[in-house]
Design a protein around this nucleic acid. Structure first.
Length: 274
DNA sequence: TAGTCTGTTAGACA
DNA sequence: CTGTCTAACAGACT
């Protein structure tokens, strides 16, 4: 579950049962998932109380009383759930919290990463240093300065150095909201579209977080999911929520793009809508 | 069976 | 230098 909103939902759920508590036991079920640090060091950190959980872009960081930090990146299929058993399907790392259950990092495709960083290691962690601003801190000037006229807008937004946390789903949803054609380049956007993009980005993530939190009241057990909560992503052939015309699917910058041709057509500026 | 997938990066190429 | 595309990572699902 890997876009900014999904990572934030995981963070908030973990806070509920993990904050302030130490683990009593740690099991590394797939050594390849631990990209940095040893199991011994990982244990030493997890066995101390969790002091804070922070999110930056799609990265989630657990800060321990020991002074260590553990950084998670979920890539395509990673997630953390509360489980009654330490080894549900696709479990890669599990830790037991007394009286609560097993926290389990699951990752079907095993692209996900766990990094153990000692004191001071976090401040020097490259991926976080290179990361662009969070959507809520992004200014129009900064965005335009980073995207040349020739650059594919979609590629630019997927670049975490431009803005943190935007993924392929968010691009489809944002372009639909702002009336931007999927294959637009920097130079194609009207002033109104640039402004809409900067305004809609944090709003979009806030909305998805709200909806996901409401949906997954029981992240425990993790049923959740299932339903498509998006306006256009994954809705190819279905009516556009705004105009009723069928949603189209094409490939832009190597990734699927869902869009409404009339609403986002021809590069013609369209009204931004909430 | 072949194509597809919420992410990211390295390398080939224009 | 700028930008685009593909492969690779690994596995399940259609």
């Amino acid at each position: 579950m890997p876009e900014l909103a999904e990572v934030e939902v995981v963070r908030r759920n973990l806070e509920k049962w993990w904050l302030g508590r130490p683990a009593r036991e740690v099991r590394l079920l797939d050594s390849k998932s631990l990209k940095q640090g040893s199991l011994r060091e990982l244990e030493a950190a997890f066995l101390t109380p969790l002091e804070a959980l922070s999110r930056r872009g799609k990265y989630l960081t657990a800060h321990f009383e020991s002074g260590d930090a553990v950084v998670f990146h979920f890539r395509m299929t990673g997630k953390i759930v509360l489980s009654e058993t330490p080894e549900p399907r696709f479990a890669r790392l599990a830790w037991l919290i007394d009286g609560v259950g097993w926290g389990v990092f699951k990752d079907q495709r095993r692209f996900g990463e766990v990094h153990l960083l000692g004191p001071g290691g976090l401040a020097a962690y490259e991926p976080l240093m290179k990361m662009g601003p969070e959507p809520e801190d992004l200014t129009l000037e900064e965005l335009r300065a980073k995207i040349s006229d020739r650059k594919m807008l979609k590629s630019a937004l997927l670049d975490q150095a431009v803005v943190a946390g935007v993924g392929n789903i968010a691009v489809s949803e944002l372009f639909w909201r702002c009336g931007i054609a999927p294959e637009s380049r920097g130079g194609d956007l009207s002033e109104a579209q640039w402004e809409a993009l900067v305004v809609e980005m944090p709003r979009y993530f806030d909305e998805v977080i709200e909806r996901s939190m409401a949906d997954e009241i029981d992240y425990i057990g993790e049923a959740g999911g299932g339903e498509n909560i998006f306006d256009v992503y994954g809705h190819q052939g279905e009516p556009c929520p705004r105009c009723g015309e069928p949603i189209a699917l094409s490939r832009v910058a190597g990734r699927s793009s869902y869009f409404c041709p009339p609403c986002q057509g021809g590069g013609q500026p369209e009204e931004a809508t909430a």
